[in-house]
């Protein structure tokens, strides 16, 4: 089962017929994800990749029983797509789109408040439950089935961590890419909490970046929750200069509290196994989990 998505998840793709949507829909189908259709306004009634296309998410939900959606809609329309999915009753909304205006995300996030749904992203690689469902753009083969969960702000660094964990003799339950934007639907703490409560996850890799306070918040929660499962942590950007944006819109050191050093210290103080080098994630997890 793991968390968020599994083999019973029924997925629709918003922005189904576009280049990105088409390419990744094919990849997700090949992985074995239960993809039941997609939405492209104006193309309702057509068929794409052998699946039905709908004009609205509401139509798609009614006709297919979809409960998960992945969004590949261009930035100008992506916040609207998120709200449409929430309105239609989608439970897990994964938004891949990068470059959504902050103002639009403020609106979308406040629209989602109090609704029975969860947004992952935007600007994220998505979610994968190994051997069950891939709802994202990650290379599926890297995520060998196992009992380690991953929470990460970054795409390729998530693949790196999953690969190291696999090469060190373990595997992945669910990997959650929460995204690198200043406003995201699911925080580090919320994603970690899901994995802490998941009976199929024994340990967690938590990967953060400079900027914001999500990792500190998660670290404090992990300790308050009694350090129930071992957590290996890494913060990217130890060498990033203050005031410069490092690729991700949210990755910018504003004050003393959101530097990598400050976050790593808080994580250590709260019982997380922090690695200085991203090359040591797998080895450290093996030490912690397998006593190797």
């Amino acid at each position: 089962m793991a968390v968020l998505v599994n083999k019973n998840s029924k997925l629709i793709v918003q922005g189904f017929t576009g280049t990105e949507g088409t390419f990744h829909a094919e990849q997700m189908l090949a992985y074995g994800t239960q993809l039941v259709g997609g939405v492209t306004p104006g193309k309702g009634g057509q068929e794409h990749l052998g699946k039905p296309v709908f004009n609205t998410v509401a139509d798609a939900v009614t006709k297919t029983g979809a409960d998960v959606s992945i969004i590949f809609v261009p930035p100008a329309f992506a916040a609207d797509a998120i709200m449409e999915a929430a309105d239609a009753g989608i439970k897990v909304i994964v938004c891949i789109t990068e470059g959504i205006p902050t103002k639009d995300m403020i609106t979308a996030k406040s629209y989602l408040a109090g609704k029975d749904c969860r947004l992952i992203g935007p600007n994220c690689p998505g979610v994968i439950t190994a051997d069950e469902a891939k709802v994202g753009i990650m290379p599926g083969f890297v995520f060998k089935k196992g009992r380690v969960g991953i929470v990460s702000k970054s795409g390729t660094l998530t693949y790196e961590a999953a690969d190291q964990v696999a090469k060190a003799g373990m595997g992945i339950s669910t990997a959650i890419g929460i995204g690198g934007d200043p406003i995201i639907g699911t925080t580090t703490k919320e994603a970690v909490e899901l994995l802490m409560n998941d009976p199929e996850t024994d340990a967690i890799v938590m990967i953060g970046e400079i900027g914001g306070s999500l990792e500190a918040e998660a670290a404090r929660w992990i300790k308050a929750d009694g350090n129930r499962k071992p957590v290996v942590g890494f913060i990217a950007g130890q060498t990033a200069p203050p005031g410069r944006r490092m690729g991700h819109a949210g990755a910018i050191v504003g004050g003393a509290d959101d530097t990598a050093a400050a976050k790593m210290q808080i994580m250590r103080d709260n019982g997380i196994h922090v690695v200085d080098s991203p090359a040591q994630i797998g080895a450290t997890m093996a030490k912690v989990l397998l006593n190797k």
Partner: peptide, 20 residues
């Protein structure tokens, strides 16, 4: 590097290896 997070992590690796 490909990816912003991995790029920052790579900068960190350079530093840990004695470079800047």
């Amino acid at each position: 590097v490909n990816g912003a997070g991995l790029a920052m992590a790579t900068m960190d690796i350079i530093k840990l290896s004695g470079g800047e």
